[in-house]
């Protein structure tokens, strides 16, 4: 088993060491250690039930909402333990944003979808500043030109792909450092998927991005680093180009070439 991580010490944004996750008695994640850096998009791949989403959710403590879930080991953001008692979870989730499989805009206007986070976190001192944040976030998410004339319409009236970009804009609006994406394109058509992938490419470097995907071609297209999960362990972690042309582990090869199972 290869759970060694590559050390790019200077730019590690998030680091996990020997992370175990339990749902009650059942162990879902077994000793995962990984470094996430700012320069690269990291993709988590693996078959259903391998633990990749569970592991992703430990990174902004989304698993806290599941009572039977227990996380051990160490996960740090800029060297700070995110499971420390002193950690403000609301603040943490602003710093480590998340985008889900199904677009989940609030049943509010497009404007309010974006403005919601900055308002509750007190990031804007007035209407003008809030307007700026909304515009900047929508621009970064590649949605501004499509919605700028209808900011007061409901976010749920947008197409699926636009809704997902709205959700990304909403995550960006609170100025996060890390964005976690859990299968962000699985409910989208190929064109909307391509737009999200292009967006991921543009956001690379501004935020540390981790994406869970079932679509290996997508992992190959958007990421520079890929981690392969199987049965709760991280089997292999390396450069995406290497993982997809010459994986070192038999299990990785069997999965990416379609021999798994």
């Amino acid at each position: 088993m290869n759970t060694e991580t590559t050390n790019i010490a200077s730019s590690n944004k998030m680091t996990t060491r020997n992370v175990d996750v339990f749902y009650g008695e059942k162990q879902a994640i077994n000793g995962v250690s990984i470094d996430i850096d700012m320069e690269n998009v990291t993709a988590f791949i693996g078959p259903s039930g391998c633990g990749k989403s569970t592991f992703l959710r430990t990174m902004n403590r989304m698993n806290d909402t599941i009572p039977s879930c227990r996380v051990t080991g160490e996960i740090t953001l800029d060297g700070e333990d995110i499971y420390a008692p002193s950690m403000d979870v609301v603040q943490l989730r602003a710093r480590v944003g998340m985008v889900f499989q199904k677009p989940n805009p609030f049943p509010k206007s497009i404007y309010d979808n974006i403005a919601y986070g900055p308002r509750i976190h007190g990031l804007a001192s007035g209407k003008d500043e809030l307007d700026q944040i909304v515009e900047k976030s929508l621009q970064r998410a590649g949605l501004w030109n499509e919605v700028k004339d209808r900011l007061n319409e409901s976010g749920t009236a947008l197409s699926g792909g636009q809704q997902q970009r709205l959700c990304i804009a909403r995550a960006i609006a609170v100025d996060p450092e890390v964005i976690l994406m859990d299968e962000p394109c699985s409910a989208l058509d190929p064109i909307a998927t391509a737009k999200i992938e292009e967006l991921i490419h543009e956001l690379r470097g501004k935020y540390a991005i981790v994406i869970v995907t079932h679509n290996m071609q997508q992992a190959a297209r958007v990421s520079q680093r890929t981690a392969f999960f199987h049965l709760g362990t991280m089997v292999e972690y390396g450069d995406t180009s290497e993982m997809f042309t010459n994986p070192q582990e038999e299990r990785t090869r069997d999965y990416i070439t379609g021999r798994y199972g």
Partner: peptide
């Protein structure tokens, strides 16, 4: 869309 040894 072959990968790894299949692609090679």
């Amino acid at each position: 869309a072959p990968m790894a040894d299949d692609l090679r």
